[in-house]
């Protein structure tokens, strides 16, 4: 079975959950509640680490409620890497669908040439964007990076749609991002998204990572071409950019003969 199949199941389930959770709440079932900014399942609180970090920064305080809601996402991050992005984030799912649509329409997006230095260049963009965002945020003193968090917007719009029956202007922002996906290959997740960038700080080498376990492979570079984050899966699996989507593991032709490119825990 392909990893992608499991991933699609998880993504579809998340997409359904976005609408199901507010619907359950409308019917007065409050077991799960919240959006992708912050959510709780029973008594376990989960919050977007960037959102909580922003409110720490803006208010200059740290309280136990903040810490409490950070434990689960950070533990997940350390253990399984950035699975949030590729397995659950609704924006990622939509972006992948857009890619399918683009292939259907035979459009060629702008995809930069892969070179060995390219991953570092794109990393600089991401970190710079996050840094500038955090600076602007601290000047204003309001957690404004939440306003451009794609998964948060999508889920909170689903909430207002289900609960109050309207959508707000924020949805246009997401629509623009999605539309641009048609023209520039995976631009938001690779170069800008502050949520994903902040998550990648909690990447640990010991957690789940893609590694080349065989000493040699046919060096076809299929994995490099498939990687949606435009890194080299053979060497850079443990970097913060890899979101553990497993597309490279699926694509590697050598895997069929013997384990070459695999998820490992070390």
């Amino acid at each position: 079975m392909k990893i992608k199949t499991f991933r699609r199941i998880a993504q579809t389930a998340t997409l359904i959950a976005i609408f199901l959770i507010p619907l359950l709440n409308v019917f007065e079932l409050y077991f799960i509640k919240g959006t992708f900014y912050s959510m709780d399942i029973g008594d376990a609180a989960i919050a977007d680490p960037l959102a909580v970090f922003q409110s720490m920064l803006a208010s200059g305080t740290i309280n136990p409620y903040m810490i409490g809601s950070l434990i689960i996402p950070i533990a997940l991050m350390l253990l399984l890497g950035r699975v949030w992005c590729s397995w659950f984030c609704p924006y990622y799912f939509i972006a992948e669908m857009m890619e399918k649509l683009r292939k259907l329409m035979r459009m060629k997006p702008f995809k930069p040439q892969y070179t060995d230095s390219y991953p570092h260049k794109q990393a600089k963009y991401r970190y710079l964007f996050l840094l500038v965002g955090l600076l602007v945020m601290s000047v204003i003193g309001v957690p404004i990076l939440n306003l451009i968090s794609a998964p948060g917007i999508i889920s909170s719009q689903a909430l207002v749609l289900v609960k109050f029956g309207y959508v707000t202007f924020e949805l246009v922002f997401v629509a623009v991002l999605v539309f641009l996906e048609l023209f520039y290959y995976r631009w938001w997740c690779r170069l800008f998204c502050p949520t994903g960038t902040f998550l990648s700080f909690f990447r640990m080498k010991r957690g789940m990572t893609v590694r080349k376990v065989a000493d040699e492979c046919s060096n076809c570079l299929t994995c490099v071409r498939t990687c949606p984050m435009m890194i080299n899966p053979m060497t850079m699996g443990e970097s913060g950019h890899c979101n553990n989507c497993g597309d490279c593991v699926d694509a590697c032709p050598d895997n069929r003969k013997k384990d070459t490119l695999k998820f490992t825990f070390r």
Binding site: K33, G34, Y37, A47, A58, S59, P143, S156
Partner: peptide, 12 residues
């Protein structure tokens, strides 16, 4: 400064 606009209070 503190509210992260998560809408949990709205839902509950």
């Amino acid at each position: 400064e503190l509210c992260i606009r998560c809408a949990r209070c709205i839902e509950v």
